[in-house]
Amino acid sequence: MATNFLSTANPFHLASSSQSSVPSNSLPIKFNVKRQLTLCKVVNQQALNSLSVTKRGISISFVTSLVLSLGGKGWFDANAAILEADDDVELLEKVKKDRKKRLEKQGVISSSTKEKGYLQDLVYKLSEVGQAIEKNDLTSVGSVLGRGIDTDWVQKANIALNKLSSSPEEKSEVEMFNSSLASLVSSVAQNDVESSKTAFVSSATAFEKWTSLTGLVGQLKGL
């Protein structure tokens, strides 16, 4: 800045020697010295002013950045709080819906006395089959199973299972139970003890999982 100022400054025009009574080799020298001192003073003052402005600008920039930084953090925290509140509302709504479903399910189960009777009979039949398989007595197993899926107690059990199944998980366990039961009937017909045991365990496990999902575990004896 000082260089620009010096390069653009217009020099003073000194009076000629013919217009002054002072010798040409004395006044111009003193005048030039005074002029140079004045110019230096002006230049130094401009430099100091420039430095002051620069420092002020830096200070303002720093304070502004700090304010914006704090303001940004506050904005972020505020938005985070809003999002968290939204999550809480969604969670609360989900809890309410789940509770409503459980109450509705309990109401259906409480009113399904006949279906619970079918399921209780299923528990007894599976217990008989399990005891017979444990003794490798496939003849007794066949007597209990009868015609398999066409047997009266199996059909009634499926009526209850389908009526009281509402969620995809519950319906999946019902399908697993019927599939394993069909495998059990086939294995018994082939007099395959090991396969019969495997199929029985699979069918019994699927039924137990289903009762846990539906909340019937404590309402059926023998589980």
Rank of each mutant, 00 (worst) to 15 (best):
E194Y: 11
D150A: 11
L126K: 06
V63L: 10
A160R: 07
S20W: 08
S59H: 08
R99F: 05
D77M: 12
S196L: 08
Q155I: 08
S202N: 05
L83C: 04
V33H: 10
E115I: 03
L91C: 08
N79H: 13
V188M: 01
K96W: 01
A199D: 07
V67F: 15
S212M: 05
S179R: 14
R35Y: 15
L66P: 10
K96P: 04
T38P: 00
I29H: 09
D137A: 01
S196W: 11
S50H: 07
L126T: 03
F5A: 05
F62C: 13
S7H: 10
L103F: 13
G57K: 04
A182V: 15
S172Q: 09
C40I: 13
P23M: 03
E128I: 03
I60R: 08
K135C: 07
D121K: 13
A199W: 12
V188P: 12
I149A: 11
H13R: 14
R56Y: 15
S187L: 07
F62A: 13
S21M: 12
Q120F: 04
G117T: 11
V33I: 14
S52D: 06
A199H: 11
E90S: 07
G222N: 01
V154K: 00
I60L: 14
T198V: 15
N4L: 12
G57F: 07
K125P: 03
